[in-house]
Design a protein around this nucleic acid. Structure first.
Lengths: 103, 103
DNA sequence: CTATGGTGCAACTGTTAGGTTGCACGACCC
DNA sequence: GGGTCGTGCAACCTAACAGTTGCACCATAG
C-alpha cells in the first residue's frame, strides 16, 4: 500500500538529525561523507537519513565522479504547508493568512 | 534532555491516523470515544494518539462533566511553517513568499 | 442506591526506526 | 598496476511505537 506522501514528508522532518541535514544541504549541497564528518554519527547513519529525505522528495542525488552530491528539492514542503494552513487556519490568524496566500 | 518542540510537532503529524484525528477535531471538537467510534482502532489507541498531539501542543483538553473534549491549538503549526519556509524559501518561490509574509 | 458509560492506568506483543560494524565495489591519483 | 577514498549492501542490536486487552474509577441517569 502506497503511504500518503505527507507521511514521508512529516516523518522525515520529525527527526532532529534529518532537519539538521536538510538545513545544512540547504546552505550548500554536500556528500554523505562530508555531512557525516560534522556529525557524531557514522556515515551509514547519515546515508539512511538522506534516504528518508529523498524518499520524501526533499532531496535529489547528483552523481559527480565517484561522489554523490545531494541538493534540496523543496516542492513537498509547500504541500505540507498547505495541509497545515488548512487545518489550523480556522483558529490561527497567521495560518489563515498563509492559506489565503496559497489560494 | 527536552527534545526540540519541532520533534514533537512533526512527529505527531507524521502519522496518518493522527492527521485524520487532528483534521476531524479541527472541524468539530470531540471526545476520544466519539473519535474512536469512527475509526477501526480501539479507544485506547486513540487516546495515545491524542496524547502525542497534545504533547506537541496541537490539542488542548477540556473537561465537560465526565467527558473530555479535545480542541485544536494550532500555534505550533505556525512555528513549523516558519522553519519550512526558511529552509525551502531559497529554491521555491511559493515558500519564499510565505517566508516574506511571516517576516 | 444501582446501573451505565466514559475515562484513566498498566501490562503485554509485534513492528519499525536509528544506530552500529564489516566488507565488497568502483573511480581516481601516482 | 596499486593504493586510496567514497559509496553501496547486508546483518545485527536496541529502543521506541502502534496497537491490544483487562480492570479500576467516577460522574450522571433512573
Amino acid at each position: 500500500m502506497p503511504r500518503h506522501p505527507a507521511d514521508a514528508v512529516f516523518g522525515a522532518l520529525a527527526d532532529p538529525t534529518r532537519r539538521q541535514l536538510l538545513s545544512a544541504i540547504a546552505e550548500e549541497p554536500a556528500t554523505a561523507t562530508e555531512l557525516a564528518s560534522e556529525l557524531p554519527i557514522s556515515r551509514q547513519a547519515v546515508v539512511k537519513h538522506l534516504g528518508a529525505l529523498s524518499e520524501a522528495g526533499l532531496l535529489a542525488r547528483e552523481r559527480v565522479g565517484r561522489d554523490v552530491r545531494y541538493h534540496v528539492t523543496p516542492a513537498p514542503l509547500s504541500d505540507a504547508v498547505s495541509w497545515m494552513a488548512e487545518v489550523g487556519g480556522q483558529w490561527d490568524e497567521r495560518l489563515a493568512a498563509l492559506a489565503r496566500r496559497l489560494a
